[in-house]
Amino acid sequence: MSSIPNIEIKILGLFEKRDSSAIKLIHDAYGRALYGVIFKILGKAEDTEEVLQDVLVKIWEKSSLYDSSKGRLYTWMLNIARNTTIDKTRTKLHKQNSKTDSQDDYVHLDRSSMELKPENIGVKDLTNILKADQKEIIELAYFQGYTQQEISEKLDIPIGTVKTKVRTALLFLKDYLKNEY
């Protein structure tokens, strides 16, 4: 993964030249990760490809707004992917439930949509190797885009603990990846 910075430099150079082949590089380097994020939020394969395409187009449309001094390219794209996907679920759920429910219910996604369904088979989902509390915190911080403040309030733990728990969970995954792959 040490090649990531080089890819980033290339992508940023193409952004600057308004060259849309930047999107091909992003697709090749980060496409599967963004797919995984969208898939985790939707909780199913259906619509994931469509949303990923929307996300790639949005990344291109917003590319002039990215400022590398403020954060990593991946973080910036992750935000676009999360927001686009959550908007998508919200409009979809809203269409289905517009008669009975208010939109406020969908600020964060319903956990029941994360269930394992037949169309999801074939995906490894490494969060499953985590302990329940680690898994929950990763789901919130990574895939649902909660801020540390929101996680701290939701789980009723100090912000410092939120940070160390996320780190411990990811270190556990790192060790697992080292042994398995």
């Binding site: 993964m1 980060y30 599967r32 990760a33 963004l34 797919y35 995984g36 994020v37 898939f39 985790k40 991946y74 995906v123 490894k124 989902d125 490494l126 969060t127 990763i138 990574y142 990811l170 995954l173 990846l177």
Partner: peptide, 9 residues
């Protein structure tokens, strides 16, 4: 983080 997300693709 990228590997973790990719495990869902």
């Amino acid at each position: 983080l990228i590997s973790l997300a990719e495990s869902n693709a």
